[in-house]
Amino acid sequence: MKEQIKSWLEQGTVDVFLGYREVDHHPIPWCFTQEAIEEVDDLVVSPARYSLEKIATHMAAEDPDIRIGMLARDCNNRALNVLYVWNQLRPEQVVTVEANCCPSPLKEHADCSYLEPGTVGAYKKAVGIDNHLRLEAVEAYGPEEGRNRWMYEFQKCIKCYGCRNICPVCFCRECSLDHDDLVGTGPLLPDIPIFHLVRAVHMAGRCIDCGLCEDACPMDIPLRLLYQKVNRIAMDLFDYRTGTSGDQPPFSILGDRVTLEPKPIQPVTGAEA
């Protein structure tokens, strides 16, 4: 793998390669270049993850012609697809080296151990939401219970914006979470649940379920479940499969491409599904 990366850098197939370098026994996100090609020897593949594609997006914004190599797990690839869809990166400017990946409803039967159920305290399990539950289990809560549990989780939020900042598919120049009219930027605690729901709605058709937000959250809010929920809706209602391809149009809650064409006259029986 290291030889491959070196040859890409040497031959100029890519201008930079984004991966992890072991520094003082810690894997650190690293930008390998031809100038310091010897650093590739310290490249490390470990469970450690960072949204490398987000760095790639920033680089491409500065230099649209840059060619980027990247170490990519399946979640990174899904993120790349989303970024292609949203015109933030071009597929022809990115090459990837594949690494093993994490389990997710978007990618069953994967072997990454990173997001294995770990330590969820009994109290959180009792009054909040166990981050490792399946979505169906969370959906099964009654109205009152669901409300209590979710609001318990949201109440903890310290509005650090970690979820947004780490998110590989958050690229907007102006973020609605900074929008005074929508969420109120000043006070802590944030305007709940609006703060989380605004972000959730923006994640529909965008979240690739990498779990980095949850990982970054200091308060352990089960964000993955929340975004799994909106993506499930995007799939069930709009037949939109997030991150599966770079060719699809951006997801819009307005639905498929909006047209003014009258549809062929068809007898309607009952409601449109």
């Binding site: 009152e144 409300r147 649940p193 729901l197 929920k229 307005l254 498929d256």
Partner: peptide
């Protein structure tokens, strides 16, 4: 499409029993 948007909202609010 409206029915999809409203269902989206109902589903999301359903987490809080507000659908």
């Amino acid at each position: 499409m409206t029915i999809k948007r409203i269902t989206f909202l109902q589903e999301l609010l359903g987490l809080f029993g507000l659908q």
